[in-house]
Simulated scan of single mutants.
Amino acid sequence: MITSGEEVECRTPERLDARLSVVAGVYVAALVAPTLVFVLVERLEVSNGALAVGTLCTAGVAIAAAVAWRVTHLGRTIVWLDRQWLAWLLPLAGVVPMVTHAFSVIEYPAYLLVDPNAAPVTGLVGLLGFGCGIVAVVLGDVLVTMARTRVAEAMVDESAIDLERPSRFRGPARNHLQRSGLTAT
């Protein structure tokens, strides 16, 4: 991990892969898009569920693409994501949409059971927002892990490695170990 006083030479934006950028974009979209669409549906009094879901998907894709593009062109993002306080903050931020939309998890299915025609569209968007919060929790942890891996790879000098030890489990032995572990689980 990098302390606040250390400077680290990180990869340039040209060498930064798109996978981290896409994960960062989807993470931010999962946090922001449901709330934006929820407010939009509430203000415009949208009554069509398909329109609300389409708007949510469109907003999610637009936000994810914008953030992914920005992260791709900003190489210092990796070093910033390697900070210790972000290791717990990014996954924890996904809990915010879950708490905000928790009522919709009960409300929308209840409406569907009693009177499906009376189900509010905001309940549907809230239910999807709760799911997006779960996705954001998982992606927050994945994002921190990916960033730390890339910082470690950028800091290791390949010419300084004198000895590499290959894995004992290759091919069929590894597959057998994986099947055994899966069966035991």
Rank of each mutant, 00 (worst) to 15 (best):
123 G>S: 03
26 V>N: 05
75 G>K: 01
122 T>A: 09
104 S>V: 00
9 E>K: 15
121 V>H: 03
74 L>V: 14
48 N>Y: 07
67 V>L: 02
106 I>K: 13
8 V>E: 11
23 V>S: 10
140 G>Y: 07
88 W>L: 01
18 A>P: 06
100 T>N: 15
64 A>L: 00
54 G>M: 10
99 V>M: 03
71 V>N: 01
48 N>A: 07
31 L>F: 07
98 M>Q: 05
6 E>R: 11
119 A>L: 11
79 V>P: 11
157 D>W: 09
131 G>V: 10
133 G>A: 00
136 A>C: 01
98 M>G: 05
121 V>W: 02
154 A>S: 08
92 L>F: 12
75 G>H: 02
31 L>S: 06
58 T>M: 09
30 A>Y: 08
56 L>E: 03
18 A>K: 12
81 L>V: 10
6 E>Y: 05
27 Y>A: 06
169 F>C: 02
105 V>D: 03
34 P>A: 00
154 A>K: 02
46 V>K: 00
13 P>K: 01
185 T>G: 15
91 P>V: 03
59 A>W: 06
18 A>G: 13
150 R>L: 11
146 M>H: 12
184 A>H: 12
10 C>Y: 13
31 L>Y: 07
153 E>A: 11
25 G>R: 02
97 P>M: 11
111 Y>V: 02
26 V>L: 02
157 D>R: 03
126 G>S: 06
15 R>S: 13
67 V>K: 10
165 R>Y: 13
27 Y>M: 06
140 G>N: 04
88 W>Q: 10
66 A>S: 05
63 I>K: 04
46 V>T: 08
125 V>D: 08
41 V>S: 03
135 V>Q: 06
89 L>V: 11
143 L>G: 04
155 M>Q: 14
140 G>T: 03
49 G>F: 11
178 Q>F: 14
16 L>H: 14
60 G>I: 04
43 R>H: 11
106 I>P: 10
43 R>E: 14
53 V>G: 03
71 V>G: 09
108 Y>Q: 00
171 G>L: 12
80 W>S: 00
68 A>C: 00
166 P>G: 09
170 R>N: 06
1 M>N: 12
77 T>Y: 14
95 V>G: 09
171 G>Y: 07
124 L>A: 01
23 V>E: 08
9 E>Q: 15
157 D>E: 00
